[in-house]
Design a protein around this nucleic acid. Structure first.
Length: 739
DNA sequence: GCCCGCCTTACGGCTTCTAC
DNA sequence: GTAGAAGCCGTAAGGCGGGC
C-alpha cells in the first residue's frame, strides 16, 4: 500500500507559484538532498526544440516536466526563486508567466469529487516492490494524489493552446501505443466519444462549458515525468476498471520504460486513412481538372440569394436530402457554406420542413437558398463545390465519363511501370468494363485467354480495329469500375503476398477484406489502389505475370527466396515459386455466399415459405415493455455460436443494424432503461427472435438465404441436407435493408 | 422560433486476432 | 489459408436543452 502519510500537501495557497518545498511532495529516491524540485526556466518558446519522436525522453518540455535537469537554469536556490517569480514565457508569440509546476502541486479544486473518490477508494497498491524499484523511478502515488495532479488548474497567465495540447496528446498516445479509449476512461474519466470530440474540435476550447477540465488534465499530464505517467497508466483512477484488470495492469515492467496494460494492451495506431478533413486543409487534388466556368464569390452569393416568392419546402427538402446523399456532401459543409446556417439548424429544417408560409423570414431564407441551389445544374454545383474545397466530390448519375475523381482513366492504369515494359507497351486495351468481370474463367485464371481487363492475351485488336484507333480511343475511354457489378477475382496467396503493400497481417487481411467486400469499392478511401493493381494484374500477359511473381517488388522477400523464385522454367509458361507454390484452393469450409448467390442445395426439398416478409417483420417488431438485455445478449451470443450464423448476417438481416453496432451491444449490454429508443429496438428484435422456436428460426434463416445446418441443441433431421452449406450467407433478402 | 453547445448513436474504413 | 469477430479511430447526424 502506498502510505498516505507520505503524501504531503504542501501547495502554495495561491496555486500559482510552485515553491521548492511544494516540489518535494513527491519524494524521489534520488532526491534525498532536498533537490526534489525542478527548475522551470524553460519557456514555451523552446517548444520547437522538443524531440517529438521521443517526447518522453525529452529534457525540455513546455509543461514543466521534471524531466528537466535539476539545476538546468539556476545556479542556486535564490536565483531560481527570484527568477521564477519574474520570468515570463513566450507561448505562441504571446508573453506569459511560465508554467511553474509539474502538476504536482495543484490545488484541490474539486473537493466533492475528491471526497467521493476518497470514500470509494484507497490508495492502490503498487505492484513494484519499493525495495526493488530502481532508484530513478518515482515513488508510488495515491489515486487521490494523481487526480489532484491532473486536475490542477492551469494558471491564468498561461495561454492555453488547445491545438497544441491535442496534438501533443495525440503524439504521445501514438508513440506510447495508448488508445484514445484508454486515455479517455483512465486518465480523463470521460467517454471516448467525448474525448474524440474534444480532440477533433480543440478550437472550441474557448467556448466549452464543461470540456475545459479535460484540457486541464491533458495539459497537466503532458507536464508529468515519464515515470509518473507510467504509474498513472497502471492505476485505476476512477474505479472504472475491474479489480482483476488493475492487478494485472499494474504489472508494469520493472524499468517502467513503457506502459503495459496487460488486459487491454493499447494497440499501435497505424493509419492508412488520411486524417480528418478538418485537419487536412490541403487543396483539392491537382488531378482534378479546372472547369472553364468559375464562380466568383459574388456570383454564388447572388445565385443563392435570388429572391423567390414561394418554395415548396417539402419538395426542396427531399431534393436536398437526396442530393446530399448522392453527392456525399456533408450536412456540415452544405449548411455552413451554402445555406449559411448551422448544421443543427438546417438538419431539422430539411427533416421536418414547415410550410413556406409558416416559416419566419430566416426560415424562408434557408429554403430560398436551398431552392436556388437545386435550380443550378449539377455541373454548376460541382464547380462551386470544387471552388469551396469540398473533397470527395462524386460525380452524380451517369457521370462515368467524368475525367475526375472516382473514375479510373487510362492513364491511371499505367501508374505501375513494370520493368518488363521496355517496348512501350505498358498500356493495354481498356475498352472493357468491370461489369464484364463475370466472364473471367475462374478455374484457370492464369491460363485464361479472354479477359475483360484488356489483357494482351486478347487478340491485340480485340476492341479496336487498329493500334491507332486504340490509342485514340484509349485517350478518352474510361472504364466502369462499379464494385456492385463485379465479383472478386480469387487468386492464390501469391498475389496477396507480393502485390500489396504493408505488414504481413495487413497484406493478407486487407486483401482478404477487399475480396470479401468488393461491393464496398465505391466507398473505399485507400483500397482503390489495390483494385487498380488487381485490374492491371489481370490485364497482363502470362509471361509478365510470371516475371513479376519472381520479383521482390516491395523488398519483403529474403534474397534467398527471390533467388529461388526466379528459377522459373525457361519457357515461362508456368511460374513456379519454389518456396510457396500456388496451391489449388480447396475448401474445407464452404465459401461465403457473399459472392455465391446460388440457391441452396437442391437436396433440400422445396417448401413453400412458411413466413412471409411481412410476417417476419411483424414478429421481430412486436413491441415489448421490457427486455432483460443481459440475458437476451447471452442467449443471442450462444445461439450465434451454435447456429453458426454470422454476426454480419444476423445484425443486418434480423436486427437491422450494422454488425459493428450490434456487436458491442450484445457484448456489453446496457440495461433496458439505459438504452435509447434505437437500442431498445435492437434488443426488442433480438428478444423476439429468441422467442421463436428453433424450427421457426431455421425456417426464417432458410428463407433469408442463411444456410445453417447446425441446429442448436435440437437438431432437426430435415435440415441435415443443408449442412454442407452452413454459414453461407446471402444478403439478397435483407429484412431491414431499407430501414 | 431560431440557434447552437454538448452529447450520444450509428456506422465506415481499417487492422488485428483467432478459429477452423 | 481463409473467414469471421473484435477492436481501433474518424465521422455524420440526431436528441436534448438552454439562450436569445
Amino acid at each position: 500500500m502506498i502510505p498516505n502519510k507520505n503524501i504531503h500537501n504542501q501547495q502554495s495557497p495561491d496555486g500559482m507559484n510552485y515553491t521548492l518545498t511544494q516540489l518535494t511532495t513527491i519524494k524521489y529516491p534520488i532526491d534525498t538532498d532536498g533537490n526534489s524540485r525542478f527548475v522551470r526556466g524553460v519557456g514555451f518558446n523552446e517548444w520547437d526544440i522538443v524531440i517529438k519522436e521521443d517526447r518522453f525522453e525529452m529534457k525540455k518540455t513546455p509543461y514543466g516536466s521534471r524531466e528537466l535537469p535539476i539545476h538546468f537554469a539556476f545556479s542556486n536556490e535564490s536565483d531560481h526563486q527570484i527568477v521564477s517569480r519574474a520570468e515570463t514565457i513566450r507561448f505562441n508569440g504571446r508573453h506569459h508567466k511560465l508554467q511553474k509546476c509539474t502538476g504536482m502541486n495543484q490545488k484541490r479544486n474539486s473537493e466533492v469529487q475528491k471526497a467521493t473518490i476518497r470514500a470509494k477508494r484507497k490508495p492502490i497498491q503498487s505492484p513494484i516492490d519499493s525495495s526493488s524499484t530502481p532508484p530513478q523511478h518515482s515513488p508510488p502515488m495515491s489515486v487521490e494524489r494523481v487526480i489532484e495532479m491532473l486536475s490542477k488548474p492551469i494558471p491564468f497567465e498561461i495561454h492555453v493552446d488547445p491545438l497544441k495540447i491535442t496534438k501533443d496528446i495525440r503524439d504521445w498516445m501514438t508513440s506510447n501505443s495508448c488508445s484514445q479509449g484508454f486515455f479517455a476512461s483512465n486518465i480523463l474519466n470521460v467517454c471516448r466519444s467525448r474525448f474524440n470530440y474534444l480532440l477533433n474540435y480543440p478550437a472550441l476550447y474557448g467556448i466549452l462549458k464543461s470540456g475545459k477540465e479535460y484540457f486541464v488534465k491533458m495539459y497537466n499530464s503532458l507536464g508529468m515525468s515519464k515515470d509518473e505517467r507510467n504509474q498513472i497508466m497502471s492505476m485505476d483512477l476512477y474505479g472504472t476498471r475491474s479489480i482483476g484488470k488493475v492487478n494485472k495492469a499494474v504489472q508494469v515492467s520493472e524499468n517502467s520504460e513503457n506502459f503495459v496494460d496487460i488486459d487491454e494492451p493499447p494497440k499501435k495506431i497505424s493509419r492508412k486513412r488520411p486524417a480528418s478533413v478538418r485537419s487536412d486543409t490541403s487543396s483539392e487534388s491537382s488531378s482534378s481538372p479546372s472547369s472553364p466556368t468559375a464562380f466568383t464569390h459574388q456570383m454564388i452569393t447572388e445565385l443563392l440569394n435570388k429572391p423567390v416568392d414561394f418554395v415548396d419546402t417539402k419538395r426542396v427538402s427531399a431534393e436536398i436530402k437526396e442530393w446530399l446523399v448522392e453527392s456525399q456532401a456533408t450536412q456540415e459543409w452544405f449548411a455552413s457554406t451554402i445555406v449559411g446556417r448551422n448544421r443543427r439548424t438546417m438538419g431539422p429544417a430539411i427533416n421536418y420542413p414547415r410550410d413556406w408560409n409558416d416559416c419566419a423570414s430566416k426560415g424562408q431564407e434557408t429554403f430560398m437558398r436551398m431552392h436556388n441551389w437545386m435550380k443550378l445544374s449539377e455541373m454548376q454545383r460541382q464547380q462551386i463545390m470544387r471552388q469551396h474545397k469540398l473533397k470527395n466530390i462524386i460525380p452524380i448519375r451517369n457521370n462515368q465519363q467524368s475525367p475526375d475523381g472516382m473514375n479510373y482513366t487510362l492513364t491511371q492504369l499505367t501508374t505501375i511501370k513494370y520493368p518488363i515494359d521496355t517496348d512501350g507497351n505498358s498500356r493495354f486495351v481498356r475498352g472493357v468494363g468491370f461489369n464484364e468481370w463475370d466472364i473471367v474463367i475462374k478455374e484457370d485464371r492464369f491460363e485464361m485467354k479472354k479477359t475483360p481487363y484488356g489483357s494482351r492475351e486478347l487478340p491485340i485488336h480485340f476492341a479496336f480495329s487498329n493500334e491507332r484507333e486504340h490509342q485514340i480511343v484509349s485517350d478518352i475511354e474510361t472504364i466502369r469500375f462499379d464494385g456492385l457489378h463485379h465479383k472478386p477475382q480469387k487468386c492464390t496467396g501469391m498475389m496477396q503476398k507480393r502485390s500489396l503493400k504493408g505488414k504481413r497481417y495487413s497484406r493478407l487481411d486487407r486483401f482478404n477484406y477487399l475480396l470479401n467486400y468488393p461491393g464496398l469499392y465505391g466507398t473505399l478511401k485507400s483500397g482503390k489502389e489495390y483494385f487498380v493493381k488487381m485490374y492491371n494484374w489481370l490485364g497482363m500477359l502470362k509471361d509478365e505475370r510470371n516475371q513479376i511473381m519472381a520479383m521482390d517488388l516491395y523488398g519483403i522477400r529474403s534474397a534467398g527466396k527471390v533467388n529461388k523464385a526466379v528459377q522459373v522454367s525457361k519457357d515461362m509458361k508456368i511460374f513456379v515459386d519454389i518456396d510457396e507454390p500456388p496451391k489449388k484452393i480447396s475448401r474445407k469450409r464452404p465459401a461465403s455466399l457473399r459472392s455465391d448467390t446460388s440457391s441452396e442445395s437442391s437436396s433440400s426439398p422445396p417448401s413453400p415459405p412458411a413466413f412471409t416478409h411481412q410476417m417476419v417483420t411483424e414478429i421481430l417488431n412486436k413491441p415489448v415493455d421490457f427486455v432483460d438485455t443481459k440475458r437476451v445478449s447471452a442467449e443471442i451470443k450462444e445461439w450465434l455460436v451454435e447456429s453458426q450464423a454470422t454476426q454480419e448476417w444476423f445484425a443486418s438481416t434480423i436486427v437491422g443494424r450494422n454488425r459493428r453496432t450490434m456487436g458491442p451491444a450484445i457484448n456489453y449490454p446496457r440495461d433496458w432503461n439505459d438504452c435509447a429508443s434505437k437500442g431498445q429496438e435492437m434488443f426488442m428484435r433480438m428478444h423476439n427472435w429468441m422467442k421463436l422456436s428453433e424450427m421457426q428460426r431455421q425456417e426464417i434463416m432458410r428463407q433469408y438465404k442463411l444456410k445453417s445446418a447446425k441446429c442448436p441443441k435440437t437438431t432437426i433431421p430435415s435440415m441435415k441436407s443443408s449442412e454442407r452449406n452452413l454459414r453461407n450467407a446471402a444478403s439478397d433478402m435483407i429484412i431491414y435493408s431499407n430501414c
